[in-house]
Nucleic acid binder design. Structure first.
Length: 881
RNA sequence: GCGGACGUGGCGGAAUUGGUAGACGCAAGGGACUUAAAAUCCCUCGAUCCUCGAUCGUGCGGGUUCGACCCCCGCCGUCCGCACCA
């Protein structure tokens, strides 16, 4: 029977419109059903969606639609991470207003997302650049400030000379700005910080509760927080050598046990003691000047030589008044970790050893491997940092390092230097406070007014939001808000005298640190959240399943975790501790690269310009335009420079959303990279057509047939396959194993097809038709979360009521998911030699008897009794001859 | 250097977590239908040996076990994150 091909171009817009009109995906806050909050990381409105968005939002949509079908009240919102530098760059380059540029991009991208058929609640949409959004952010900034979670302080900060702004530590990658790629400089500036370090311990501890997060992300966060336990030791300066007024040097160490292996002290170039010592020592001052210009990139650090300069200052060993050690300024000591000073133990640390060897300092081994000989154990050019036994360490000799640690800590805590203990146990974190000031225009203004008399004064809440000025010029480099002729000039809210607004805006990562909470009630104009809807007993938070890229494993996820805690402190949230209960990091979409020509004239060409041929497995490529040969290059992340990009619009227009969605879910596990291939997309499209053909060819014969499972015969086989698939696909989607769910659906359609063909040609009885009807209905309901338009089309062809999107997920009959007979593989000495089909409930003895009666088993045993017969019920039989 | 993940056909990947390795898809080869093409359908598709069949086979080398892609020990390789962090 000839059937018309399925035409997504006609079908998809029709269903999208129908869903919209029925307001199908608008979620109500007051709903008695159990809640489920699915969220994909919202996009930056750069102009057009890219293929990575398609993958991300397809996955989220499958989860959302499936949860709906499972009876949940699902929240699945979408918005725009709309502040950021690209808008300013576009404004500067194209003479457009950043606001206009941003909202135009949002309109374009929203239209693109609509063509994907996502079950999004657009009624909750907002952009972070809407004053109605950032108003609340400004309010929370002031609340945080009042609660002691904000600090304005002078600090050495990362300055990106290209983007002309400061950056947070997390935004500096290999010494370069995360967006501009420019080498970051260090500057002393007074800036606003969120005191994320006040929550270090909790942010670390709570990682253990996030059992639905990828292990990898939790480990990355733990490393970033970087907790270590050590001892703060105050070393007395030898009086004769100390600069006036200086009496001690504070050092942080995680290895106080190695204190008898100490042979020098080293301080950072910008350590106060170094500066004091340099005052009367021009050579030292020159040295400090020299090393502070050193690069900080990973590559430079790798090759950088250890350099030091003896300050002439000496410290006294805590356990021996007659033992003094020199204090160096050294280039490998960092001011912003610990106290900016270390004691060097060359035998236990490779850096210290390199340094000691260079400057002729003593190397005393203090830890040797278990079972070593203390008399002969030596350290020459390789330090020993592992566990072992203490040697050459007086009262510590023979102890394990851990024990020695405690001993030193105890002894030093009993001694005082000045009026403080000489040693104090201390927990140190690597995490720094979050610097949020940005010297940019297109961001959320920091709602503070600086008054000469009153200092930094909060903008009164009735004057919020502090809105960005509409007219702005990008003619001069630097901060446009600062250059604005009138905007910053205001009166002090406290004393009324002329004052100035803070012209910095907040890091855009602040915007994305709480948008998920705003989605729970974006209509509330009075406050950021509404207690009942946010996280009360009936609230939406936490997000049950969050999906996004691994690139946000630290930045965005850590900031959001901090923000959630800070919102709780300030009363904007009440119960929830973690924002994201489940986190999933999806892989990238990658593509082959194509290169035309060779040498300096070579250029990359786009996939659409290339024709690929495959003869006997040998692939070759030519340029469509003129047939010239093209080299097929490695598979890489899609990038403009390599031109290996595919435009989602092209795919959606030629194949339709369902094909694109199905392809995204097939084959590759979602956490891994997926290779975009034309052949793969065509394979997906074939499946779309196959489902349609199956449904449209059987629908006439199935009209009026009531779905009913069969338990026996061929129809029984079909029913069992269908019910098993329902069980498995549900489990797979629940685990986000979409590729496995897809494979099972292929298997099911392969099983359905022969009986469907028989039915279409009139060769099916009533039982068969009923079973077929059920299997096909189940298939349609199961593909609905993945290919929603096709599923609607099939549902209506089958005469189904209403939208398939409103149907419940099919229920399987557990009795039909198991077979009456089991096929046991029969092994002889661990190798499969045949199989045995026997009743499922056959017991151990029965199976064993039946196996031993088998021809090939008899033959293998050759009349002798088996040494052993292992029967694992429902699994396998192994005969040991 | 520290931490993590991974290694299975020509390719993407399955394997109920110790029980038939290679499901499912892609690519390829052969055939059917067709004047032809598209679409569709059928067959083959880890390697070796001459077929039935057998032997080998999950990065490499050992081990545990009736049985190992899975567990243990020792290597090799790839990818990712962090890094003069004291």
């Amino acid at each position: 029977m000839a059937t018309e091909r399925y035409n997504p171009r006609a079908s998809e817009p029709r269903w999208q419109k129908a869903w919209d009109e029925a307001k199908l995906f608008e979620t109500k806050n007051d709903d008695p059903r159990p809640k489920y909050y699915v969220l994909e990381m919202f996009p930056y409105p750069s102009g057009r969606i890219h293929i990575g968005h398609v993958r991300n939002y397809t996955m989220g949509d499958v989860v959302a639609r499936w949860r709906r079908a499972m009876g949940y009240n699902v929240l699945h919102p979408m918005g725009w991470d709309a502040f950021g530098l690209p808008a300013e760059n576009a404004a500067r380059d194209n003479k457009v207003n950043p606001r206009d540029w941003t909202y135009a991009n949002i309109a374009t991208m929203k239209a693109q997302l609509k063509t994907m058929g996502l079950s999004l609640d657009w009624a909750r949409e907002f952009a972070t650049c809407d004053p109605s959004y950032y108003k609340h952010q400004q309010k929370m900034f002031l609340d945080f400030w009042r609660s002691g979670l904000v600090e304005r302080k002078s600090a050495k900060v990362n300055w990106d000379p290209e983007d002309m702004t400061v950056l947070a530590n997390e935004q500096v990658i290999d010494g370069r700005g995360w967006r501009s790629g420019a080498l970051v400089e260090q500057r002393d500036l007074t800036q606003w910080f969120f005191k994320i370090t006040s929550m270090s311990q909790d942010l670390l501890d709570s990682l253990d509760t996030l059992d639905k997060w990828p292990e990898k992300v939790r480990v990355m966060q733990a490393n970033w927080i970087g907790r270590s336990e050590g001892l703060l030791i105050r070393w007395r300066l030898a009086e004769a050598t100390a600069p006036q007024g200086e009496t001690e040097l504070e050092v942080y160490t995680t290895r106080p046990d190695t204190i008898f292996g100490a042979s020098f002290m080293a301080v950072a170039a910008d350590h106060p003691l170094a500066k004091r010592a340099a005052e009367n020592d021009p050579a030292l001052a020159a040295f400090i000047e020299d090393i502070s210009h050193m690069g900080t990139s990973a590559a430079e650090l790798e090759t950088a030589e250890k350099k030091g300069f003896d300050t002439g200052i000496r410290v006294v060993h805590p356990f021996d008044d007659s033992w003094t050690l020199p204090v160096y300024v050294a280039n490998f000591v960092l001011m912003d970790y610990g106290t900016g000073a270390i004691f060097g133990c060359p035998s236990g640390d490779q850096r210290d050893l390199d340094f000691a060897n260079k400057y002729g300092l003593p190397v005393v081994p203090v830890v040797m491997p278990e079972g070593g000989d203390a008399k002969t154990f030596q350290i020459i050019d390789e330090a020993y940092g592992d566990d072992g036994v203490m040697i050459n360490s007086r009262f510590l000799d023979g102890m394990a390092p851990k024990q020695a640690f405690d001993e030193v800590a105890t002894r030093l805590s009993g001694v005082t230097v000045g009026n403080r203990p000489q040693g104090e146990r201390k927990v140190q974190f690597r995490l720094r406070d979050w610097l949020i000031s940005r010297q940019r225009y297109w961001g959320c203004p920091i709602p503070v007014i600086h008054c000469e008399a009153c200092g930094a004064v909060p903008v009164p809440s009735d004057q919020l939001p502090v809105e960005l000025p509409a007219e702005v010029s990008f003619d001069k480099p630097g901060n446009p808000l600062d250059h604005h002729p009138t905007w910053k000039h205001v009166d002090c809210p406290q004393c009324g005298k002329p004052a100035k607004r803070d012209t910095d805006t907040m890091d855009t990562f602040v915007d994305s640190s709480w948008y998920f909470a705003r989605f729970t009630d974006p209509w509330n104009q009075e406050s950021p959240t509404t207690p009942n809807y946010a996280d009360g007993p009936n609230g939406w938070m936490p997000v049950n399943q969050y999906i996004g890229g691994i690139e946000h494993a630290i930045l965005h996820l850590l900031y959001s975790r901090f923000f959630t805690r800070a919102m709780k402190v300030t009363g904007h949230l009440s119960e929830v501790k973690e924002p994201f209960e489940g986190m999933f990091t999806q892989g990238m979409v990658v593509h082959e690269t194509y290169r035309l020509g060779s040498g300096p004239n070579a250029r990359w060409v786009q996939p659409v310009e290339v024709k690929i041929e495959d003869v006997d497995g040998k692939r070759s490529a030519t340029l469509i335009a003129d047939g010239s040969p093209v080299d097929i290059g490695p598979i890489e992340k899609m990038s403009k420079s390599k031109k290996n990009v595919v435009d989602p619009d092209d795919i959606l227009a030629s194949y339709g959303a369902d094909t694109a969605r199905w392809f995204m879910l097939s084959d590759s596990p979602p956490e891994r990279d997926v290779i975009w291939t034309e052949a793969g997309v065509e394979g997906a499209h074939r499946f779309v057509q196959r489902v349609w053909r199956l449904v449209s060819e059987t629908a006439p014969a199935l009209r009026g047939v009531a779905a009913k499972a069969a338990s026996e015969g061929e129809a029984g086989v079909l029913s069992k396959a269908a019910h098993k698939t329902v069980k498995a696909v549900g489990e797979d989607i629940g685990r986000l194993s979409f590729n496995k769910a897809v494979a099972r659906l292929y298997e099911l359609i392969n099983t359905i097809q022969p009986p469907a063909a028989a039915l279409a040609s009139g060769k099916a009885d009533a039982t068969g038709a009923a079973a077929l009807r059920q299997a096909i209905e189940m298939l349609v309901l199961m593909i609905a979360p993945m290919m929603p338009h096709l599923a609607e089309e099939c549902w209506s062809a089958l005469g189904g009521e209403g939208f398939v999107a409103n149907q419940r997920w099919p229920e399987f009959d557990p009795a039909l998911t198991v077979d009456n007979d089991v096929v046991y593989p029969v092994q002889i000495n661990g190798k499969k030699r045949g199989d045995l089909t026997i009743a499922r409930d056959a017991d151990q003895g029965t199976v064993e008897k039946a196996v031993l009666a088998l021809d090939f088993v008899q033959k293998a045993l050759d009349g002798k009794p088996p040494r052993k017969v292992i029967v694992v019920l429902q699994r396998i039989v192994n005969v040991v001859a």
